[in-house]
Design a protein around this nucleic acid. Structure first.
Length: 293
DNA sequence: CACTTGACCTGTCCGC
DNA sequence: TGCGGACAGGTCAAGT
């Protein structure tokens, strides 16, 4: 369930840990997780040095000195975990971790560095992928060509959110928030959290939202994403950061995975419903389906 | 064309 | 305790 805050947390960790390290070996035992031909891996990955680590929506981009980049999508259960050669697991870990000895049964790709440290791409459900591409061609990937604006970028304001959402004015607001071509990086957790914050029912039609609702939805979306980054993301089951640590946002969540509990705003019981084919958490008192217009 | 559903996978949980 | 089935949800492809 890595969404923008989780991928950003991984990016920040990798950006601190990887640049300057030289890759000496790479292996994968599940071709769909890393489909590049072994010859290309030998030529453009092995021997290269990591230059930088960037993010676009939910995609990680690791730039290499070979003028190639590793492009990574974690999908639902992907992890990128770095281990120093001499790390003794457990010691000095201030937050709990889901990851013990690596590689483990979920490890799909292992990248070894010259200093003995290693980077593991773990992915229990095998939906995620990593691929090696010429850096100049990265932005030609279909996903990156079509992905919408970054919701935390400086020029993204409530009017921009309204304009993007209105591209699908006849859809439900939840389905539209999850559409990566509308806005980049939002997934199920933060869509539910932001809609609760804005008191907007997820099944409302975009075209029925009032100006005020777009404005509040923007404010809530930005603040929930910022808080989640500050808390290191959300660990529901699998997610960990680049050092194997869990995120703590879910202990601050207001509705996500809180069905049966009281709404922190009004005390009514939070319900789990289905919208756009996804499990969706709402307060039925705060979030009404009828138009506010 | 706009929108919904199914496929891709595996681990977990629930009811019988 | 074992087992079938539902469920978890990001994205793409296929279907309505």
């Amino acid at each position: 369930m890595p969404e923008l805050p989780e991928v950003e947390t991984v990016r920040a960790g990798l950006a601190r840990l990887l640049p300057g390290r030289r890759i000496v070996a790479a292996e994968s035992d599940w071709p769909k997780s890393f489909p590049n031909a072994p010859a290309d891996v030998q030529q453009f990955l092995v021997g290269a040095e990591v230059l930088d680590v960037r993010r676009r929506a939910k995609v990680l981009l690791i730039g290499l000195s070979s003028r190639y980049s590793l492009v990574i999508h974690l999908k639902m259960t992907g992890q990128m975990v770095f281990r120093d050669h001499d790390v003794r697991f457990g010691a000095g870990h201030p937050t709990p971790s889901l990851v013990n000895r690596l590689p483990d049964s979920s490890t799909r790709v292992t990248i070894a560095f010259a200093d003995g440290s290693r980077l593991f791409f773990n992915d229990q459900r095998k939906f995620g992928w990593m691929r090696l591409l010429p850096t100049a061609e990265v932005m030609n990937l279909d996903f990156l060509r079509s992905v919408g604006p970054e919701p935390l970028s400086a020029n993204f304001d409530w009017k921009a959110l309204r304009e993007r959402l209105m591209r699908r004015r006849n859809s439900t607001v939840k389905a539209t928030l999850l559409d990566q071509t509308v806005v980049g990086g939002i997934g199920n957790i933060y869509a539910d959290e932001a809609l609760w914050g804005a008191r907007v029912h997820p099944a409302m039609t975009v075209g029925d939202l009032s100006t005020r609702q777009f404005h509040v939805l923007y404010d809530e979306l930005v603040s929930v994403l910022r808080l989640a980054i500050k808390k290191g993301g959300s660990t529901d089951r699998n997610y960990v950061d680049a050092e194997g640590r869990m995120g703590s946002y879910l202990s601050f969540a207001r509705v996500f995975r809180r069905e049966g509990q009281s709404c922190p705003r009004c005390g009514h019981i939070i319900q789990k419903i289905r919208v756009a084919g996804r499990g969706t958490h709402i307060c039925p008192h705060c979030q009404k389906l009828r138009s506010a217009k």
